[in-house]
Design a protein around this nucleic acid. Sequence first.
DNA 1: GTCTATAGAGTGATAGAC
DNA 2: GTCTATCACTCTATAGAC
Lengths: 184, 184
Amino acid sequence: MVRQVAERRDVIPVLAELFRENGYEATSLALIGAATGLGKGSLYHFFPGGKDEMARAVLADIDRWFETLIFQPLEQRPDPQAAISAMFDDVSAYFRSGRRVCLVGVLALGTVRDRFAETVQGYFTRWCAALASALQRAGHECAHAILLAEEIVVGIQGAIVLARALDDPGVFARCIERLRVLVA
Amino acid sequence: MVRQVAERRDVIPVLAELFRENGYEATSLALIGAATGLGKGSLYHFFPGGKDEMARAVLADIDRWFETLIFQPLEQRPDPQAAISAMFDDVSAYFRSGRRVCLVGVLALGTVRDRFAETVQGYFTRWCAALASALQRAGHECAHAILLAEEIVVGIQGAIVLARALDDPGVFARCIERLRVLVA
DNA sequence: GTCTATAGAGTGATAGAC
DNA sequence: GTCTATCACTCTATAGAC
């Protein structure tokens, strides 16, 4: 038995893709074992709470990514317009123009929404707030900035749904361009 | 043994709500049996193809509803603006301002997307086309009507995601109002 | 010996098919 | 109701690092 160098954090991106592609319920431990190359022993060693803890770890990882690369720049970068533009770039890359779904959005629509309700709500609340902050600093009146932020997040989530449904990344790209013009 | 009056078509709305709330994978036959009051025998009598056939029956039912109440009026009503306005009313009621999810949208994001890919794609293609037709008749230039239709369907789907995530039907209502203004 | 990482047989429960 | 497959999960065993 060779001691693997695998660590908990190496497993999380694999878990993220599995949950994204299959959803929470359809991602079985057998699938996870096959995809990670780890046995149940290792998986339960890293995640004593089982699948629930795996999903929470993935969500925490996603949260960290967005917090660092999207939310904080929106709130803190001196040039809010540049921060918003960078958000559109980063989000397009992250969701691969709608080819990759938003795990938090998927969870919001499913049964497991209740299980992860706080995390799901927190993620979207935070996104809207950070974006509204940038929009306000960019010159939009407070109430308008909040509505605009909501419209942008709605647009991104809807674009993912339609791009996946029609299997057409162009839907996502067009939506992002439209939203860019909206805040320009 | 009393002969039940239950018929296949009586079961479909129950199945629809189950699939909407739980998704495809998480809707078990046990759950279906409990919700419908039917044993597995009856369920397999009505749907020999099992869960797959149940989901297809639900999708066909949804398709019929949208075709009759949304798509055909958009294409055929003499007053296209009134048809579009009625669409917003009907869709808001149908999705209960985002409290109820779009089953087709849920399937588009999930694994089972592949299984129902054609139906999912057909539904959204049809919706966009019917809406674009109405918009064109309402005076929008052809290419612009197509983009506008896409924007509206994206908005509705995104509004469902965000309204569910934030547990706030106001998100959905505001989005619909914004889309109404867009085509006015 | 102790601790951590690994593998996998085995648990009861429950899945969908018939 | 019966079937088999698979579910999430537990538990024991074992490897090497210290």
